[in-house]
Design a protein around this nucleic acid. Structure first.
Length: 573
RNA sequence: GACUCAGUAGCUCAGCUGGUAGAGCAACGCCCUUUUAAGGCGUGGGUCCAGGGUUCGAAUCCCUGCUGAGUCACCA
């Protein structure tokens, strides 16, 4: 990498690295560093009266330095937090040679470097538990300066907030913003709590195909790829439902999977093209049982995270304490619009949509219109956890018809803070009905609905062997994490949210520029004035190039002898 | 996909109705042996996102593009 492409501070750090090497110090040593403690442990356990912790070593990143001549303080950040260390020239360098303190620590180390230290714990005059350093080992030199975030009395100064940089360079975000780590630790607690509950119930955690020949189990546009050896298209799964139900056919009474699903659709605050869903299927149960199971699960998760069931989401306080309100979709619509749509036909529903100013088009069937009314008029009002039950049959092709009403299905969604969190069915296990429903989907597809489901004949065949009555439930883990941790963007609960790739401008090599006859010392200047590619240079006007580079030379006081205008013309010839 | 806002030093941000680019932190040099947003004195650091246009003169005004965020549309 050429120096002109680096910032001043990066050049200085590279020079420091060279200086370290000259002193015989390997800034990237291979050996294990034995740390005896973590920062938080030391802060908790140290007791000055007991005089414990007199031999500790920790390893971590230098996050701040306060140098006062012969003594210095620094903060070291390890996996569990930060602790202050105290360095004293004569304690760190007891002999004549003070290089380690004067040169290595004061001059050649920087914020961001990873070091190991050994020493004893004490409390400073101002009352901060600190480590008095006797040995210092460089474990990794940092060549790029970190953003500097300072804090006093809980107030943060110069916070690293640019969303683009936080998501693209999550590693920096994690180093500098400790709250970010907490969110991901909570995410893990959520998953762990659920997994423990399922395991205790004796359900089997399974893995099913991500590459599927038929993308089934949901209505969504899939990503498509190609398998070379088989020469067939394969789809990234949009759901794993049909595979999990095949396993119920196979004789497992309970199966679940934490699954990455992929949908080739828009991205926004609540949608990422790849996302995590937990789906669980339990034999011999129905959706009433599943509602109880779901509310128990969420209550447990909230307790595990917070020790209570009340969670602040934006301006709302949501209480995850079971049981949750249960409301049929038709009653929900009645409650929020005053209109009773039960028994209405397609024409009547169209009139209702018009009255409510809900936009629809001809391809909409009854089910989709009802869903549209619900989505527009009701969904947003469901702040406290509410089970919405009994969806129209047209929009739930994998769900068993309602035991009391063939126009409805035994389906529920759990609404929280105005958003869908869970989706669950009494599963359709009648193979003849299932094939009919798939064929209905085909008709929708022909009508122009590009999200209608594909027919999966192997799944129908599995049902023909007989699937026990079963209830299944899916829950969006990203969304759950958002709710439970109070984040309002999915990007804040994914380590690496999808971003448009960074475009790095192509830069031609020195050799290609040299071929034009440009002297080596001028190549960087030519690049710096905006001509990164030889092809771009060829189109430049010689007069402008001449002015640009001579001007740059003068402005930056490079002290180069300017070429003649004829020289410059010759380069471009 | 549409609209709105934003992009200036390593980071956070000023920069008015066009007139030589600023601050704090970070960096560099010097001073300082219990500081903590350490302090004091001094110094350096910029393709003002990119490309066009208007103008004697553009970070600033206009157009196009790129990237991000928000709202909507689409979508669970």
């Amino acid at each position: 990498m050429s120096t002109l492409e680096l910032s001043e501070q990066e050049i200085i750090r590279r020079k420091s690295l060279e200086e370290l090497n000259k002193l015989g110090i390997n800034a990237y040593p291979a050996a294990e560093y034995k740390n005896t403690h973590f920062s938080s442990e030391i802060k908790q356990k140290f007791d000055p009266e007991k005089e414990n912790l007199q031999e500790v070593s920790i390893a971590g990143r230098i996050m701040s330095r306060r140098i006062m001549g012969k003594a210095s303080f620094a903060e070291i950040q390890d996996a569990e937090g930060r602790i202050q260390v105290y360095l004293n020239r004569d304690d760190l360098c007891p002999g004549e040679d003070k290089t380690l303190y004067n040169t290595v620590f004061k001059k050649l180390l920087d914020i961001g470097d990873i070091i190991g230290i050994k020493g004893h714990v004490f409390i400073t005059k101002v009352g901060e538990t600190s480590i008095h350093v006797k040995e210092l080992t460089i474990l990794s030199k940092s060549l790029k300066p970190l953003p500097i975030v300072k804090e006093k009395d809980g107030k943060t100064y110069d916070a690293f907030t640019d969303p683009e940089m936080r998501y693209r360079q999550r590693y920096v975000d994690l180093i500098v913003n400790p709250q970010v780590k907490e969110v991901f630790e909570k995410r893990r607690t959520i998953i762990k709590t659920m997994r423990e509950m399922f395991d205790d119930a004796g359900y089997l955690e399974v893995e099913t195909p991500i590459l599927q020949p038929i993308p089934g189990g949901a209505s969504a546009r899939p990503f498509i790829t190609h398998h070379n050896a088989l020469d067939i298209p394969l789809y990234m799964r949009i759901a794993n439902e049909l595979y999990l139900k095949r396993l119920i056919v196979g004789g497992y009474d309970g199966v679940y999977e934490f699954a990455k699903d992929f949908r080739n659709e828009g991205m926004d605050r609540t949608h990422n093209p790849e996302f995590t869903v937990m789906e669980i299927y339990v034999a011999y149960k129905d959706y009433n049982w599943m509602m109880e199971f779901t509310e128990t699960m969420l209550e447990k998760v909230a307790m595990a995270l917070h020790g209570h069931t009340k969670v602040k989401i934006g301006d709302n306080e949501v209480d995850f304490k079971a049981p949750y309100r249960r409301l049929t979709m038709i009653d929900a619509i009645k409650e929020h619009t005053g209109i009773d749509i039960s028994g209405m036909d397609e024409t009547q529903l169209r009139t209702v949509c018009d009255e409510l100013h809900i936009e629809i088009d001809e391809t909409f069937g009854k089910g989709k219109m009802i869903d549209e009314i619900f989505g527009e008029k009701c969904e947003g009002h469901m702040i406290q956890p509410t089970f919405i039950t009994d969806y129209p049959v047209e929009m739930s092709p994998l769900c068993k018809k309602h035991r009391d009403n063939p126009d409805l299905t035994e389906r529920f969604e759990l609404m929280v803070n105005g958003k869908e969190l869970c989706n669950a069915y009494t599963e359709l296990n009648d193979p003849i009905d299932q094939l009919d429903r798939f064929q209905e989907q085909m008709k929708l597809s022909e009508k122009g609905d590009d999200e209608a489901m594909f027919i999966d004949m192997d799944f129908v065949r599995a049902l023909e062997y007989g699937m026990p009555p079963t209830s299944g439930m899916g829950i969006g883990i990203d969304r759950l994490t958002m709710f439970m941790t109070g984040q309002d963007s999915i990007q804040d609960v994914l380590f690496f949210p999808q971003m448009r790739p960074e475009k790095k401008e192509q830069v031609d090599t020195d050799e290609l520029f040299a071929e034009l006859g440009i002297p080596a010392e001028w190549i960087e200047v030519v690049r710096k004035t905006g001509y990164n590619k030889v092809s771009a240079l060829k189109e430049a006007k010689p007069g402008k190039l001449f002015q640009d580079i001579c001007g740059y030379n003068k402005k930056n006081k490079l002290g180069l002898t300017n070429p003649s205008q004829d020289d410059v013309k010759a380069w471009l010839a």
